[in-house]
Design a protein around this nucleic acid. Structure first.
Length: 481
DNA sequence: CTAGGGTTAG
């Protein structure tokens, strides 16, 4: 166009600016200035978008600031730009100042929260949207379902599913996959599978989320079965599919099959790749915990601290390695190190959803309005455990306490409080679902197995990485986690 | 003509 000496107009600029690399964006920016399109609102908005998409939030904001008129679209573009780069609060300030809001702008804000680890705020905003006169659409429910999946709130997720049905929101690929993901992360594989089976228009991402769902729950054979089905249908598995089935093989101890699938990756031209070093080091530390190799664990830890890879999780892991060997000086050393490096142990909590309300528990929490009954139930549970000859696994407790105190502190682990709450507030025989922010501790794992046996209840626990289905005294993870 | 969706092990 330029070589033919035809002058691009504002529309040309804004359309080319969509999906263009940063350097071309900059070039187009100066072109637009030369041709006098700098005050065109479409061009300006597209430029804000280009800069924000390439993490140049400063340039984006500079442009946004000098725009003579702020339209709904330009404000939404800036909100999206902010949230894309993690400036969720700044986005919210703009959002709150808007005089009118349409569905896209609500979606941008809700999704911004959801994609940046603030699912509860996403859900609060979603409820506010329902009160407003703007109707949610497919995009809204996908963002809201993703938030439900993160928090693990099955009842709220179900409500949104019902809302989809009764408000003529199309159950397209995106909505369907979000539903599958929400159901499996909220502990209901049955519902996830039901949505999966009902969907007519499935793509590889839909299949992946079902495969990953099965793998996450420890249903390895189902995951492999589904993988075979998708291959027979001629679908090309992706790296995520392989993550799902390889972890399924690992959890089920299917070593030979694991290698077969690993070699199959070649056929689909998928390169083995590792994209998160710190987590891999954490895995190595876990292995050293299992094998009690303190010296190597220390070496790794020094390295991690040096590289700024150390997280509260890796410190706690090292501390547990010391604690398991009775090295309380080591434990104290790690504590001091955590303090000096400004890393806090992430407080563990467990939550349970009862009647659409989420009840959250910290260790030793007394804030619940039914605390008295919950603690009475805990005592009851202890009696059951004692009668079954249960020995507490007190090694796992982080602190240097006497044996009696250690056991006391195990008894009030947040997971046990949540289970006690579930036992007193749901019908006998119903499944109890718990969500935890950390990994399950070995003691709580053993206790939950026994409680499932004694009460005849199925207890489903979602921890930081995966699901545990406790049924009749055993767990779907096969005690491997 | 401008803005917005889904899956991710250890």
């Amino acid at each position: 166009m330029l070589t033919q000496n035809i002058e691009p107009n504002a529309f040309t600029f804004s359309s080319i600016l969509k999906a263009c690399p940063l350097e071309s964006g900059k070039a187009l920016h100066s072109q637009a200035l030369k041709l006098g399109y700098e005050s065109d609102t479409y061009v300006q908005t597209a430029l804000v978008d280009v800069y924000a998409r390439h993490s140049d939030i400063v340039s984006a904001f500079k442009l946004f600031e000098i725009m003579p008129e702020r339209s709904l679209v330009s404000l939404t573009t800036m909100i999206t730009g902010y949230t894309m780069n993690g400036y969720v609060q700044e986005a919210r300030v703009l959002f709150d100042r808007m005089e009118e809001r349409d569905v896209v702008c609500w979606n941008a804000m809700i999704d911004g929260y959801s994609q940046h680890g603030r699912p509860n705020e996403a859900l609060v905003l979603f409820r506010q949207m329902l009160q407003s006169k703007v109707k949610p659409n497919e995009v809204t429910v996908v963002a809201a379902l993703s938030a439900c999946a993160q928090v693990g709130v099955l009842e709220s997720g179900r409500w949104i599913h019902a809302y989809v049905k009764s408000n003529r929101i199309q159950l397209n690929k995106h909505v369907g996959t979000a539903l599958i993901d929400m159901y499996s992360k909220s502990g209901s594989l049955e519902d996830a599978r039901m949505v999966f089976d009902q969907m007519r228009d499935k793509d590889v991402i839909t299949w992946n989320s079902m495969v990953v769902g099965y793998a996450m729950h420890g249903f390895s054979l189902e995951a492999l079965q589904l993988f075979n089905e998708m291959c027979e249908l001629g679908l090309q598995p992706t790296d995520i599919t392989f993550i799902g089935i390889l972890s399924a093989c690992a959890n089920a101890g299917l070593v030979a099959e694991g290698w077969d699938y690993f070699h199959l990756m070649d056929k689909y031209r998928i390169e083995p790749k590792i994209d998160s070093d710190p987590i891999l080091w954490g895995t190595l530390l876990t292995a050293y915990r299992i094998h009690g190799n303190v010296r190597l664990a220390e070496k790794i830890m020094d390295f991690l601290a040096e590289q700024d890879f150390a997280t509260s999780g890796t410190y706690v892991l090292l501390s547990n390695i010391y604690a398991a060997g009775g090295d309380w000086d080591g434990v104290a050393k790690v504590r001091a190190l955590m303090k000096s490096s400004g890393v806090d142990k992430e407080p563990g909590y467990s939550s349970i959803e009862v009647n659409n309300k989420v009840h959250e528990f910290l260790t030793g929490d007394m804030k619940h309005h039914k605390s008295k009954e919950i603690y009475r139930m805990l005592e009851e549970m202890n009696k059951w455990l004692e009668a079954h000859g249960y020995m507490p696994l007190s090694d796992v407790v982080l602190h240097n306490l006497g044996e009696v105190e250690k056991q006391k502190s195990l008894v009030v682990h947040s997971e046990r409080l949540a289970i006690a709450c579930g036992l007193i507030s749901t019908q006998p025989g119903t499944t109890i679902k718990i969500v935890k922010n950390l990994r399950v501790c070995p003691d709580c794992h053993a206790v939950t197995k026994l409680v499932s046996k004694i009460t005849g209840r199925k207890i489903i626990v979602r921890d930081r990485n995966r699901f545990h289905h406790f049924v009749e005294g055993s767990c779907s993870c096969g005690d491997f986690w």
